[in-house]
Computed example of a mutant assay.
Amino acid sequence: MLRQASRLLNRPLTTTLRVRPFSSDLPATPPADSAFIESWKKVIPNIDPPKTPSSFMQPRPATPSSIPSKITVNFVLPYASELSTKEVDMVIVPATTGQMGVLPGHVPTIAELKPGILSVHEGNDVIKYFLSSGFAFIHANSVADIIAVEAVPIDRIDPSLVQKGLAEFTQKLNSAANDLEKAEAQIGVDVHSALNSALTG
């Protein structure tokens, strides 16, 4: 048994490892499996063979050879598209690891978002949204896809209602009778604290 293991370990890695391309790097129309199609047509000649998931995927956009001057932002919510292919100078997202500034040419990244401020910078104009949570997908071709569960422009938030909500959830957290009530109250405190910081800071 040890001899077999040592023989396997001494084999070159190039013979045992195969590099798989990303599915989105494959051609837009993948080569059809002719044997499968022929077998399908013999069994069910009146119905077209099914397509595989790669048949529906678009090829990955090419990474530009030079860094563009703008970053393209898509910002979507479950019920609306706030920004669609908007070219801006910079976007700052509230990642769970801290505020993350994204400029053209940013390294490809997936970032989880926490309650906080999303700011979109275009020249001297800055649009700010308060996000509850979500994800940001930064692509190598200077495109940022931001998906949020809930968002609202910062100028539409009433500071007095934020203070009232923070007080209510803090009281619920202190008087929670079980883990579920405590977790729900903690979420309320976290969101209202982030709202308060966004308005005051």
Rank of each mutant, 00 (worst) to 15 (best):
T16H: 03
S81F: 04
T29M: 05
A136K: 01
D190S: 15
D25T: 07
T72W: 02
A140C: 11
V149R: 14
K164I: 05
T14F: 12
V102I: 15
L113Q: 06
A148D: 00
I187R: 09
S55N: 15
N124D: 12
I187P: 00
K114V: 15
V143D: 07
K86T: 13
V102P: 00
E184P: 01
E38Y: 03
H139A: 13
K172N: 08
I110C: 01
V149S: 15
V102F: 04
T63S: 03
L2V: 12
S142Q: 04
L26E: 09
Y129V: 02
E38G: 05
D158A: 11
I127D: 14
A111F: 02
I154E: 06
G105E: 00
R18E: 14
L131Y: 03
A80C: 04
E38W: 06
A176S: 12
P94M: 07
K41E: 08
P50Y: 00
S24Y: 09
A144V: 12
K182N: 08
I157P: 00
G134L: 05
E38T: 13
D33G: 10
L9D: 02
R11P: 06
H106W: 03
S81Y: 02
V152Q: 07
T14W: 08
P12W: 03
G105F: 06
L9R: 10
P53M: 06
N74E: 06
D155K: 10
T15V: 13
S132V: 13
A183Q: 14
I157S: 03
M1Y: 11
T14L: 11
F22E: 15
F169M: 05
E122L: 10
R11I: 07
H139S: 15
D125R: 11
D89F: 04
S23L: 15
F137T: 11
L180N: 07
P30C: 08
M100C: 05
A35G: 03
P64R: 01
Q4S: 12
H192R: 08
K51A: 13
P27A: 05
L173S: 09
E38S: 14
S197T: 15
S119D: 11
I117K: 08
L131T: 13
G201K: 14
I138Q: 07
M90G: 01
P49F: 05
N74G: 08
V88S: 01
Y129H: 11
L173T: 00
S55E: 14
P94H: 09
G123C: 07
F137N: 10
A167L: 07
D155E: 13
I147P: 03
